[in-house]
Design a protein around this nucleic acid. Structure first.
Lengths: 340, 340
DNA sequence: CTTGGCACTCGACGTTTCCGAGTGCCAGCG
DNA sequence: CGCTGGCACTCGGAAACGTCGAGTGCCAAG
């Protein structure tokens, strides 16, 4: 029951035409635009088979065919090579990501860049804490019983927490605690911090216990709790070009864009920086976005991905182009992070 | 040529009905729904006058009347008292803003809260740097020639900058520089930092000059450059309820929502925390959003506002309710900031 | 297996018709 | 002088209708 080469070519042609014209494509138009070397009638037979197999469908009798999710799936899996970026696009990436000042800046620029390149909605997870390490812990006295705990990570990300203490603390003790904590945890990956910090408290005198305990507790809390990853979004304006299907597509999408939980699930697990993930239509069902597709990829300095970035659009999207752009940007960002 | 009381009542009734029904309102419907005590014919005469004066208009002959921007203006200025929040809403504010962990958290929660209360798009400026003061400056050595300058402000906001130095620096010197800079600038408002820091460099030895200069330069840069205020946005999903007028309203708005520059102009100058600003329709012309209205207000601990927050919606919006919600939230946030 | 021919289907689009909400005007009334 | 009921008029919107044509499925012949 496997499809022969011509049928695959027909499917590819249908997808390409439908993506560019946004209109159901008929047998006649197909042979006109692609030189398939056969007559429309033949194509019709092929199309009938493709439809029977569930790769394409017609919105109503006597209309052209439209790819189904399954059709897009096949297209992406077997009929597509990533489209390499044009030199203009490459240059855009360069200039866009040149002169970033800090990590937040990398993220906000990248997500805008991605939205611009793909002309779709871009979503990007801030680099995850859980996979990076501690670079420095800073304790700042704000008032006699109020302390700011600042955690600086490998990736240059900064986390902060306010701590209120039951009793005033001493500046000298604070400096001591700061020094010892840093000595204990600097350079450690987050996963090892808990173990390294645990014996620390015992080495201080009884007067210092409350302070040390509070700081340590806050630190651990920061590491764990910030598992709720932050997100950046750009390109919502591109939604307007997605056109008509308001209820089906537009509204749930706008809602999802605010529900970061949903978006995170949509982006999915971070894959290795070189492996693209494509989720098409109903494959996103559990997030209520069965009319949308997601192209995502992990990024990060090493082989392990720190987090995920991706693009969100209608199932009818230019997969080769989008996938090319997403991968290129992810690679570029990964390189920047490595260089940092 | 001033309007008598009944004409004002008619205008108010028109605005209220149009806001709730979204349809042009005719003389008959008006007397039915509000007990004005006169006949439709009389109302028609009043409406003719109101139209002549430019407060209302008819989309086409033989349709009901619709308020003009000028009509809304009059309504807001003279016919409206802020609607106080329901207890349920008050409780929502409480629970929503309870247990904030840091400044970013305050902003992101507030903006979501505002969007939810008003069922419109909420925009909020992060507290401005320029009007706050320095609480602490931290210098962190990341590598032999790489330094992280962290600035902690009064409002609890943290700014960071990476600095690469031409030559390695010494930890001891760094500690010295850190101490002296903090002594010099802690507690100062930003506007005075430049003056306070300027004589500092001279007091160090020649070896330390590059380091000190670099740090000072970065610090000043941070103060000035971060004038590009950051923004938080929420409630884009509510756009869907704004309905039909896609081109007129929707697209420019989505674009504006990404163009932070435009949004900042839209929010306008920060006013005192108790003074609401309402911009209606064409009054926003220069931002290309003549179909939208903005209700904004300054917020901040003192009398002076730190920044602005507001709500963005169609000119046809529930002004009393929106204004009430915006003011209530702003007051609440201001109180939190003061308590911090 | 491919092809041209042919009858058939059905949505898109333009035209026409019809309905009624809403208006402006006017003459009469308190 | 202002309010009121009556009345003719206007005009947008919805519904009904007809036409057009793209596209299909099927079939017999090459």
């Amino acid at each position: 029951m496997s499809l022969d080469d011509r049928k695959l070519a027909v499917l590819r042609a249908i997808v390409e035409d439908y993506v560019s014209t946004e209109e159901p494509v008929g047998s006649k138009a197909l042979v006109d635009r692609h030189n398939l070397g056969v007559s429309p009638a033949t194509i019709r037979n092929d199309m009938a088979v493709l439809e029977e197999e569930g790769y394409i469908a017609q919105p109503h009798t006597s209309a052209g065919r439209v790819p189904t999710d399954k059709g897009y799936r096949l297209f992406v899996d077997r009929l597509t090579t990533l489209k390499p970026l044009s030199t203009a696009e490459r240059r855009a990436i360069q200039t866009f990501l040149d002169g970033v000042v800090d990590l937040d800046d990398v993220v906000s620029r990248t997500v805008r860049l991605l939205a611009q390149l793909t002309r779709q909605v871009a979503v990007m997870q801030y680099p995850s804490l859980t996979r990076s390490g501690v670079r420095h812990v800073e304790l700042v006295a704000l008032a006699s019983t109020r302390l700011l705990v600042v955690l600086i990570t490998d990736a240059g990300r900064i986390e902060q927490r306010l701590v209120d203490l039951p009793e005033p603390f001493d500046e000298v003790v604070l400096a001591d605690v700061r020094a010892r904590i840093n000595a204990a945890v600097c350079g450690l990956p987050f996963s090892d911090v808990a173990a390294a910090v645990e014996p620390l408290a015992r080495r201080f005198g009884p007067d210092e216990q409350p302070l040390v305990n509070a700081v340590v507790a806050t630190l651990l809390e920061t590491l764990v709790e910030r598992h709720d990853e932050r997100l950046a979004v750009a390109g919502t304006a591109n939604l307007t070009r997605f056109g008509q299907d308001f209820d089906q597509f537009f509204e749930p999408l706008l809602e999802a864009l605010e529900e970061h939980v949903v978006l995170l699930r949509l982006l999915g697990e971070a894959t290795s920086p070189s492996t693209l993930t494509v989720r098409i239509g109903h494959e996103n069902e559990l997030t209520g976005l069965s009319a949308a597709s997601v192209v995502s990829v992990g990024y990060g300095p090493g082989e392990q991905a720190l987090a995920t970035m991706g693009v969100l659009g209608p199932t009818r999207m230019d997969y080769p182009g989008t996938m090319g752009a997403v991968r290129a940007v992810a690679r570029y960002v990964s390189r920047i992070l490595a260089g940092n």
